Simulated scan of single mutants.
Amino acid sequence: MTDNNRAKLVWRKIPGLDPDNSPEPVQCRTKLFPNGRNVRRSNFACVSLAEKRDEKEFSPSFDQLLKHPLAMVALLPKDAALFAAGAIAGASAKTVTAPLDRIKLLLQTHGLRAGQEGAKKAIGFAEAFTLIGKEEGLKGYWKGNLPQVIRIIPYSAVQLFAYETYKKLFRGKDGELSVIGRLAAGACAGMTSTFVTYPLDVLRLRLAVEPGYKTMSEVAINMMREEGFASFYNGLGPSLIGIAPYIAVNFCVFDLVKKSLPEKYQKKTESSLVTALVSASVATLMCYPLDTVRRQMQMRGTPYVTILDAFPGIVARDGLVGLYRGFLPNALKTLPNSSIRLTTFDTVKRLIAAAEKEFESITEGNRKKQEQSSSDNGI
């Protein structure tokens, strides 16, 4: 028997009833027999079976929702609302910081392209910025941003849900998540989301740094025709190896620093912003060389087949500093990227919480009105 079908014993106080000075009780008659003969009873109370009221019965009406439009947000599934918040935050952050990301990609891959084209081997941040504007105009700073935005939506969703799933998997018997478990959950989530969306990342790089392409579909068709399907996963090894420690360190540092703050600061957006910047900076500094290796392995005509080839090859050509080319614009984009992402996500989360609270308030008001109406009618 489910809870909705259980019998409920309800006791109601009879107004004005004085047990010491009560008149003859009203007889409670009920037909119990087929012949219709009434049975006289002298007890005060009657027992009845009551079904559980459906919560939807008290839900806000259409007119109430029109008067309180914020409550409409509560009608959306919470997971879907949070997914949309993450997608909007990620897309906004990537679009605003796209120029810095484009410069970073050019700096990371210039050494390899220079060797192929006979150009000089190194350019600086200012030179790369000027070069894009001179050769491609204002739109050039956002070249390759569309596939990046398209990629970030499923990437954020997969990473979010994968991280929550892996956290449950790595919890100890006491239900607590250790530092090792948190690192493992972050690493697995990062690798899962990277593997699922990796072809989009390769297309975005080719569109951003190789001349002659205007659309993502044009790049994809040319890659499939000339290099085969495997080219969409060039550099996957260093990508997985690079993203695993990056996400693991990023998530772990963020969670641990946030938990170490006084409770009154933990729920503030400013605290989340500073914590996110610290964790992202530590993770980026540790894992950036692997990102450079990954980018150069994704290039057409790359001489590198494995990570063991790429590391010494880059160092021999560009020195150790070659592993950190593009680090400045990458670090510079971390601040607005994290700010936009966290601010947008926190704003939507607060909006969802406020909508749920208003929805519950209207529902509770409807329930009280119904109970008052029932009491007035003597039910």
Score class of each variant (00 low, 15 high):
E24K: 10
R29D: 12
G212D: 12
Q108D: 14
S260Y: 05
A244N: 00
G313V: 05
P303S: 12
A119W: 12
M191C: 12
Q116P: 04
E226M: 11
E55V: 14
P147W: 07
L183S: 07
V293D: 00
L138V: 15
A157C: 12
F170E: 01
K143C: 09
I362C: 05
S375Q: 14
F83V: 08
S61I: 09
F232W: 02
A71V: 08
A89P: 01
L66C: 14
A220V: 01
F161G: 02
D63E: 15
G322S: 09
P336T: 01
A310N: 08
R41M: 11
R367V: 06
I153C: 08
P34G: 12
K139F: 15
V282M: 12
N5D: 12
L323V: 06
N4P: 04
K13R: 15
A353V: 14
K349M: 03
D174F: 04
N377F: 15
R341P: 01
L285K: 00
R204G: 10
V26S: 11
S281L: 11
K78A: 15
T130M: 13
R40C: 10
I123C: 07
G365C: 06
T343E: 06
E127G: 05
N366T: 02
A50Q: 11
Q296C: 09
F161C: 03
P289G: 07
K8P: 04
G242W: 01
